[in-house]
Write a protein that binds this DNA or RNA. Structure first.
Lengths: 339, 339
DNA sequence: TTGTACGCGTTATCAT
DNA sequence: ATGATAACGCGTACAA
């Protein structure tokens, strides 16, 4: 394992000063074509790469953004991977790397990652309705962006930057679709008790909007937390589907498992029951009976989040704001009479 | 945003020299109880946190490990999250953070991350049967550990450190289970063409072992790549299940979708067809009909990988080796006569 | 257009 | 047991 070359080595080989090497890399001052050649050749020859730590120290920037996500649980996994992948991809386009902070340390993670100058900015995920990290983020030297928003972001004088899919509008569209299909009642098979217990912000957002949308058209709506366990799920479905009327179903999580459970009991979406779901298009499309869905748009949300985050790097004083990615519904084969 | 305190500030407040502050943190030399108090109080008061870049520069270590993963696709997602989460968790236990490198840049990612001293070690995932990164990893200043192994790791004089689930033994167990259940034939609904095209190392490993195990008991085995698209999948299932004999099925990927497709056509695992799967226990357990499976053990593999990696940090000259995590089969409800 | 010189915050060496 | 002091590798004012 040979010694790693430094910019000083490059300078020596190129016959220029170390600072010139620096300026060739940053482009922050004009360089003659000749010296540029010299320097670039030397870099090539030595396989030079700048030392990230030294850069961070001298330049006050790490070229790293952190993704802060409390738990990467196995549940509702569809989205998370897409979020992370898209954030990482977008970051790399700008020559940034991604530090993934998944520890269940809560707000102290934020403080640590920021305080040690491990990153230039952070994306905060899995935001709770009440979230410690909101308060903490204000005191940090680096800007942060929330995917989702805590309740306090709704208060006047909000200073948090939040972006998320428009769960409220999504709920309206889904309930509306079932209403239009003539469902006599709506049952939302909502996020599992485990997810609800985590206090994730979008659950109440979705729930309130669904409720309101149903009320607006005089449709009874029942909210049932769908259990993960297949046996318990079977019991729940039995209870929901054995009544005098056949309700339309809204799924919000665990779509493959629930569709499977329905098929397993001989209830086919689009034939025996109307089903719509909140999930990624990939999930909706991949089911044995493709499911009419509102996409949670993880990649869109992530892309816009990173764009915004890089604007914040240039203008850290930008005001707080909540941005919502619009919801759209895609009709597939799981609803009987879609108009 | 106030200025960030440095160890020099701490020293000033504590009334000691800056180097003493360093030694209080590292414990690399004896400190009197009195000064320790002084310094720790000052740190507390200033909310001091060491600057990661400065540390990396001076101390030649980043306290970061990189996870290098070409693409975080949406497919076969079950495992990846668990891998990453477990690696991150284990790393944090040792006060390390995780840099997630997902770019499709191939071997250049490895070179970049290592060359810039962005990490002290790396975990290489999604290993191909022929993988550029094997060659590259040898020339790096930091040790690396492969999850999975390229073909060349089997050659004598192997210098790569590889760990993986024992896909070969897994295949044997799954085929054996179907044989014991009296299946007249085995059809493996293998990884989708997309995954196969990526050349992931474990596909041929699994395939060869499955083939061998079937031959050993005189069982015909057919390998069919299961398409992602539900319509194409339906066609494939029809073709597979409409023959004169009813084969036992081995699933290797997309378990929820395939189970769903089976139920959708009225073919119930454990009643109409014998089904076994290679997947996580969570996935197997969560299906409408829980599936007899061999678990891919992502968390075990990750835990052992990180343990090994930290040993390599102390002993970078450790020899190449392939370590396999043993396979075990869990019987559930998807096979008719399991003994 | 280029070179000199200093600072970034830590760790390590050498004194005391 | 503690304090000076010199690297560490790079960015950037300041000079030329």
């Amino acid at each position: 394992m040979a010694r790693v070359p430094t910019s000083k080595d490059v300078a020596k080989v190129a016959g220029v000063s170390q600072s010139t090497v620096s300026y060739v890399m940053s482009g922050k001052r004009p360089i003659s074509e000749k010296t540029r050649r010299l320097v670039e050749d030397a870099m090539e020859q030595l396989l030079y790469q700048p030392h990230a730590g030294a850069r961070a120290l001298a330049g006050q920037r790490t070229n790293i953004i952190a993704i802060v996500h409390p738990v990467l649980s196995n549940f509702g996994v569809g989205g998370i991977m897409a979020f992370i992948d898209e954030i990482a991809t977008q970051a790399r386009r700008r020559d940034y790397d991604v530090l993934l902070v998944t520890a269940a340390e809560g707000e102290s993670s934020l403080r640590r990652v920021a305080g040690r100058a491990l990153c230039d900015a952070m994306v905060v995920m899995e935001v709770k309705a009440e979230d410690d990290r909101a308060e903490v983020s204000r005191g940090l030297a680096q800007p942060s962006l929330f995917i989702g928003y805590p309740d306090e972001a709704l208060l006047p004088g909000n200073t948090l930057r939040c972006i998320d899919f428009d769960f409220g509008r999504g709920a309206e569209l889904l309930v509306g679709e079932l209403a239009a299909a003539g469902a006599p009642e709506v049952v939302v098979l909502g996020w599992s008790p485990e997810v609800v217990a985590r206090g994730v912000n979008y659950v109440p957002r979705f729930r309130r909007a669904a409720q309101a949308a149903a009320s607006a058209v005089g449709l009874p709506l029942r909210w049932v937390e769908a259990p993960r366990d297949p046996v318990a799920l079977g019991v729940t479905l039995e209870e929901v589907l054995s009544g005098p009327v056949r309700p339309g179903l809204v799924l919000t999580d665990g779509v493959p498992e629930i569709v499977s459970a329905l098929l397993g009991r001989g209830t086919r979406p689009g034939r025996d029951v109307d089903v719509v779901a909140l999930c990624t298009d990939g999930e909706a499309q991949g089911q044995a009976v493709p499911v009419t869905n509102v996409s949670t748009q993880p990649r869109d949300v992530s892309r816009r989040a990173v764009e915004w985050l890089f604007e914040l790097l240039d203008d850290p004083a930008a005001p707080g704001e909540i941005r919502l990615v619009p919801a759209t519904l895609v009709r597939r084969r799981s609803v009987r009479s879609a108009h």
